[in-house]
Design a protein around this nucleic acid. Sequence first.
RNA 1: GGCCGAGUGGCGAAAUGGCAGACGCGGCGGAUUCAAAAUCCGCUUUCCAAAAGAAGUGUCGGUUCGAGUCCGACCUCGGCUACCA
Length: 890
Amino acid sequence: MSRERYSPSEIEPRWQAFWERDQTFRTDEDPAKDKAYILDMFPYPSGAGLHVGHPEGYTATDIVARHLRSKGVAVLHPMGWDAFGLPAEQHALQTGTHPADTTQKNIATFRRQLKSLGFSYDWSREVDTTDPAYVKWTQWIFLELFERGLAYQDEIPVNWCPALGTVLANEEVKDGRSERGGHPVFRVPLRQWMLRITAYADRLLEDLSKVSWPEGTRVMQVEWIGRSEGAEIAFEVEGHPGTRIEVFTTRPDTLFGATFVVLAPEHPVVERITTPARRAEVLAYAARTRGRSERERRESKDKTGEPTGAFAVHPLTGKLIPIWIADYVLWGYGTGAVMAVPGHDGRDFEFAGKFGLPIERVVRSAEVEASAALEAAFESDGIACHSGPYDGLTTAACKAAITAELERSARGRKRVEYKLRDWIFSRQRYWGEPFPIYFPVRCEGDPRTLPESAVSIDFSSPRAVDRSELPLRLPDLEDFKPGEDPAGPLARAKDWRFFQKDGQWFARETNTMPQWAGSCWYYLRFIDPKNEQALVDPAKAKAWLPVDLYVGGAEHAVLHLLYARFWHKVLYDAGIVPTEEPFGKLVHQGMILGEIEYTAYVAEDGTRVSRRDVQEESTPDGRPEFREITTGRTVVPTRVEEAQVTKVGTDFVLAAEPTVAVDARAHKMSKSRGNVINPDSVVQQYGADSLRLYEMFMGPLEATKPWSTASIAGVRRFLDRTWAVCTRTLSPEAPPDGLERLLHRTIKKVGDDLEGLRFNTAISALMQLTNELFGLEAPPRRACETLVLLLHPMAPHIAEELWERMGHPPSIQRVPWPAFDAAMLTDDEVEVPVQVNGKVRGRVKVPTAASEDTVIAAARADENVARHLDGKQLVKVQYVPGRIVTIVVK
RNA sequence: GGCCGAGUGGCGAAAUGGCAGACGCGGCGGAUUCAAAAUCCGCUUUCCAAAAGAAGUGUCGGUUCGAGUCCGACCUCGGCUACCA
C-alpha cells in the first residue's frame, strides 16, 4: 500500500470529476424506497462569489443527503440560482454590461465554487430564476393568482426610493432607509400590483402548527401576521349628521373610559369635520406628517397632535368627547381612527397627559378600589367599574356584553384585524419577471411614435397574456436607468411595450416582479425541472413533497418563508400541489462571524481609555462615535493584537496597562471591516474536506460562531492522521474486544448525531476513533473501513480515496451504512464514581452486570471513601446502575 | 419598549438531573533535527511547592441524596422588532 502524503489538491478534483462522470448523485426515483427531499435555500449569485456562510448550511444538508443515501433512502438534493435582483442591474448601470451577462458570469463562479466543495447535488436539476423556461412558470403562477382575484392593482402610498429608482416593500425598508444601500425612502402614491396575502392570513397562521420549525421562527410569523380580535365601533360626529367615525379596538370593555377620539392625519374625514378656527393648524399638521419620513416619525417618540375642534358622540353615554388628529395613530392599520382610553392604554395615557385630556378608570384589579388614582395606564385584564350597567364584569365578559349591545343597536360589531398587509408585488425595475398583463390604449396613430401625453392607457382593464404565449421575455435595453419618473425603464422600450391585436393598440405592464417571485416556488421546479407542459408533474409532486429538511438563514424567517407558504397554499387550492405546507422541518444555520478582534479606545493625545469609561453614541448621520464618559472627549477604536492583551477577571486588558480594558468581540464579516474569509483560499490551503469539517466542527449548526483560521489546521491534522492510519499495512485480524466495542459505540454515536444534526460531536467521536487507531502499528482493516465509511458524509473526497486504496471499487456512496450491535455498546466492566455527601471521594471498577449490593460493598471498601465514612452515621446509600454510587452520611 | 436566543478554561466547545471541561485550538515540557518547520509523546480550570484537599458553569434564592441541566428573581451580551389601538 502506498505511503504518499494526503494531498487534497490532488485527490479532490479527481473525485469531483469522477462523481460527474459516474452520475453518482443523480436523483434516485425508485418508488419502492423511502424518500427525502433535502433542500438548501438557493443563493443569490452575487459578484463577490461564495461567502464562508454559504458552505455552512450546504455542508450540513450534504452530510444528511449522503448519510441517507447510504441508508437506502431516495434523496432529492438540488441546487439553483435566485438570480434576478438589484445588484446585477446596478452593475449594468455602472459598466454597461447587460444584467443577463453579469448574472451568468456570477452563476458560473458560484457553480465552480460549490463544485469545488464536493456537494452531492443533482446538477441535472439546476434551475435559474432568470431562465425564460423558468420565468414562463413564474408568470403562469402569477396568472393563476390574477384569475383567482388574488392579484389586483391599487393606487397606494408606497416606499419610493429615488436613489434606487424603485418602490420598496415595507420589509425592504429599515429605519426609513432602504435595506440595501441605506438610501432615504419617501411615501408617494403610485399604481401598484398587489397580492391578496391577507385572504390567506388565517390559514397561514393556523397551519404553522403543522410544520416542524424553530419555535422562534413560528412566533415571528405569528407576530408578523398579527391577528387581533376586537370590535369596530361607530362614533357620530356632532353637527355632522350621517358622518360616522369607525374605530377599531381590542378592548371594547373600556368603552366607558373613552375620553377622546384620535384620527390618523391622513384620515379623509379630517377635512370635513375640522372647525374653521382649527383648520389652519390641523391642515399644517397633516401636511407635516405626510412630509416626514417613517424614520423621522419614529425618532421623535414624543406625542404630537392637534384638536380638530369637532366632537364625537359617545355611543353609550351620549357624552361629547373631542376629536384630535395625531401621528401616533396609523392610517395603515385598522380604521385609521381610535377611541382613546387613556386609563387603560399607554399611548393614550401619554397623549392625554401631554394635552391635559381627562383620564378615567374603568377597569380595576381585585385589590384596587374603583376610585383609586391611575399613575400609569392599567392595561391588564380586571373588573369593570364606572361602566354603568357593566360594573363588576370581568374583562372577557364585559368585552362580550358591550360588543353584543353595540351590535344590537347597530353601532358596532365584532372585527378581526391583522398587521399583515397585502403584498406590494411590483417593482419599477428592469431585471425582474415582466408581468404577463396588458392594457387597452386610446390614441391617434402609432403609440410607439407619439409623445406620452397623446397616449392614454386604460389601467382599469388589465388583460392576461394567453398562457400559450408565455414566457413574456424582457426586451433588450441599452439603458437600464430607472429615470426620475417611477414608471420604470420598461416604459422606454416602446417597441416592446406597445403592440397591436385585432387592429387595436395595447400597452404591456412595465412594472416587473420582485425578487421574491422566483424564490417562492423554486423548490417545486426542482422536482420536475425540465417539464414544458406543467410547472411540476402532479405525480412527482406527490412523490417528493413536502420538503423534508430545509436549511437556510434566519433572515428569511418571515419574508421568503411566508410568501412561499402563501403561493404554496394558492397552488394547493388550485390542485397543483398535494400538501398544504411546503416545508416540513426547517433549520436556520447560525451566522459565521469574523475572527475575534481586540479593540482599545485611544484619545487624541494617545492615552488609552478603558472600555468601561467609554460610551457609544451615534452622530446625526447615524455613524457610531465613542466618548470618554468622564471628560466627554472623543476616543477612537483601535485594533490591538491578541498577544498584547491578557485576561483579568472577566475583562480583557492591555498586558502593558492592566487598568485599560479592551473590547474582545467577533464582528460580522464585511468588506469594509476587511475580515471576510474567502472559501477558495481555504480550499486551496487546506482542502475542501477540511473546510467542510471545520465548519461543522465549530459548534452547533444553529449557533453564531466566530471564525478561527488556526482551528482549521486542527481538523486538517485529523485528516492527515486518518490518512496515515488507513494507509498503513492493515491487519486482516478482527479488532480486539475493546476496539470492537469502541467501533460499535462510534457507529451508534455518529448515526444518532447525524440524524440530530449534531455534526460537531459526530466529528469528535471520529477523532477519538482515529486517535485510538493511530496508536496501532497494523490497525485492523475492518476498523479502518468503518472509520472511513462513517467519515464519508462529512469528508467525502478523502473517504472515496481511502476506500479505493483499501481495494474497493468506487463509489463509497453506494456502500451501505455500517450497523451496530446493541450488545456491544457497553464494556464488561465500568468505573463508577462514589459520592459522599455530593463529593466524589473515589472510584470503583465493577462488572457492568454487578448487583447493587456488590457495587455498594465495593464502594464502601474503597480506602478514601471509607475515610470519609469513618465515624459518621449512614443516612442513605444508592447505586444508579453504571453511573454513580451516592452515600449520604451525618 | 416588546419578542427570541445565549452566558461553562486563555479560545471554539462537550456533558438522558449522576465523575464539569470530551474533542479541537492555543500554551508549556520532552523526543526527532546540525538547526528550524513539520511530525510524535506528555502536561494544561483555579488556589496550594506538592500530596491530601478546597473552590468552580453570569448573580441571588429554591427543589433534590445529587443541579451547567429543573423552578423563581435579577444582571450582561447578541439577534429580530418597534406607537398595530
